[in-house]
């Protein structure tokens, strides 16, 4: 059997998700025997052309050139997998979507005329068809290995869509939303991280984006009825997955009823 060809590509991001591939210390060399790493700038100076059987795409689309580049990658790739919160929802840099991006450029750069970016940071699926989205900020390396194994075997990856709450229960962590009244996003956030934050005595802050059938409105109304302020709730939703559909709808809903409470 000929090896499948893998391409790893980066758009606006921190590099953390593709780094998870190099963090597979026990599996990396075996993986390199199983699959042909044809394009992976961070790992190899041997740059090969497409087509690719599997493309892993990290990062969000933020420049006019990126809009063209992702189309080219899509055309060359049989299966395209978006990895991480940036690729699946625009990432933390999507916070610009709520701001005046010219003001943002002027706030950071002395010569704004040298900077060429789009007003928004958007997901890969906003531009091309995506075959699978692997969530997380960062993605979990075991889930990444599952996705690669599935793609190599031509099967569907098994990654749960349920909420972080399920992982907390399995881990035996006492619920901090119930016992400490902390605005934990676990009930509306997709599992995958292993429910780390509650186990470390802090509320979940939504790294893996919305879970299936997330009821954000009920959850935020519950927290807002307690000690949580609108600003805290809006900011909790506007983090790494700020522009993920249901998180965005809910943060905008809270903001619109509190027009003076701008973020």
């Amino acid at each position: 059997m000929t090896k499948k060809r893998l391409g790893v590509f980066k758009f606006a991001s921190c590099d953390g998700c593709q780094l998870q591939l190099l963090s597979c210390e026990d599996e990396l060399l075996e993986l390199a025997d199983t699959i042909e790493i044809a394009h992976f700038l961070e790992a190899t100076s041997l740059i090969q052309e497409g087509p690719f059987d599997i493309a892993l795409v990290e990062g969000s689309i933020t420049t006019p050139a990126d809009v063209e580049r992702i189309r080219h990658i899509r055309q060359q790739s049989k299966i395209l997998v978006a990895i991480g919160a940036c690729a699946s929802s625009g990432g933390i840099q999507a916070l610009r979507n709520w701001a005046d991006h010219h003001e943002f450029i002027a706030a950071v750069y002395a010569s704004p005329q040298y900077i060429n970016t789009l007003a928004t940071s958007t997901s890969i699926a906003d531009h091309v068809s995506v075959d699978f989205e692997l969530r997380g900020c960062p993605i979990d390396k075991h889930q990444l290995l599952e996705v690669l194994a599935a793609m190599i075997a031509d099967r569907v990856p098994r990654t749960p869509r349920h909420s972080v709450c399920m992982e907390c229960k399995r881990r035996g962590t006492v619920c901090i939303a119930v016992t400490k009244h902390l605005p934990c996003l676990g009930p509306v956030t997709q599992a995958g991280c292993g429910a780390i934050c509650p186990a470390y005595d802090r509320p979940c802050y939504g790294c893996f984006g919305p879970a299936a059938q997330a009821n954000c409105k009920t959850l935020s109304e519950h927290y807002l009825a307690g000690d949580t302020t609108e600003t805290v709730m809006i900011h909790a939703l506007r983090n790494m997955s700020a522009a993920a559909n249901v998180f965005q709808i809910e943060s905008d809903r809270i903001e619109s009823r509190q027009p003076q409470d701008k973020t």
């Binding site: 606006a12 921190c14 933020t62 990432g91 840099q93 003001e103 706030a107 750069y109 900011h235 983090n239």
Partner: peptide
């Protein structure tokens, strides 16, 4: 590497959120 404007969107965030944001 496209600019991501961290210094701009940190404005107005609670200081408690800063270490989670700057890690990114």
């Amino acid at each position: 590497e496209p600019p991501r404007f961290f210094e701009a969107f940190l404005r107005g965030r609670a200081i408690e959120e800063v270490p989670d944001i700057t890690a990114r």
